[in-house]
Amino acid sequence: MNNSPLKANGYTFDAPVNSVAFTLDGSGYAFGLGNGNVVMFHDNVQKTVQVHSGAVPALRAYDDGFISLSDDGTLKTIALDGTVKDFADFKGAWTERLAVHANGSVAVAVGKHIHLWTRRESEPKILGPHDGSVTDICFAPDGMGLAASHRDGVTLWAWPHFEPQPMRLAWKGAHLAVTISADKKWIVTAMQEGAIHLWNVPLKRDYQMSGYWTKPTQMAWSADRKWLGTSGSESVIIWPFDKMGPEGREPVQLGWSNTTFVTALASHHEEPVMAAGFEDGAVILLDLQNKKAFNAATPSGHPVTAITFSPIGTAFIAGTAKGGGVLFTFDS
């Protein structure tokens, strides 16, 4: 591995980093912490806001600032000036999965249901119950539907005309995360059983890819949508989705670690580049085009819990279970 032209700015917070996000325009970024605080950086000013009483497993860009979901059952918006507003209160329900689409739709998993807000309607729509607790939500890239993972499969919801019966994709086992390909042909889940499961929806076929070291939890599509990177092994396992998809093809493995495995993964929004964090705290940058990996940060000893790229592609941020945060900026 070579060293890449990256500049790193480190921060230390007083609680584990649970989640990270950039604003929609990339001018600000924030870390969601295990003590309910959100620490925002904008215009060279650091601002710590007490937002929730529980941890902050999900943080996303929303309007000019952020939206954050806590496992204490509260969903709030945070403006860059530090103003916090209640978005919804799920009254003590265990909530940790949030999806936000670029069109402003917001979906939260609440037990076996999904609460869905669209920009067009003021009241949320409640989808479900599903077959088990909803473990993840992914909006269709066009924003006109979503996939919900749960025990024994995935449920696909489509709108504006909600079908009376959502489509069910069944596969026995515990599905922990779900994602949808750009062309909406492929639905992929990450499983507790150390595997990913893939459905080709138009062909009505499904496949299982197993052999991960541990349960994969992170999946990220490359900017050109030809590759799906996954966590859960000693390297980033990257499946090819061009042509007929990954069936019968070998995945590309980038960023080998002898001792630990990938815990956080994110994709650049314009270039075929990904960033991955490891359980030992190492951070690497992957060049999918040339099949190369670069060291971005040496192991800190603390698992990388969250990583994401700026929407304008000039930087990415990562956080660790020990409260470490880093802004990586590309030298231009």
Partner: peptide
């Protein structure tokens, strides 16, 4: 600081082991 409602969720692992049940709520 944390009092939450979680649905009891016992699930079978799909690994060919029929008594291999775990508590999803406990993991969470």
């Amino acid at each position: 600081d944390l009092v939450v409602g979680v649905d009891e969720e016992v699930f079978e692992m799909n690994n060919g082991c029929i008594c291999c049940t775990v508590r999803g709520d406990l993991i969470r």
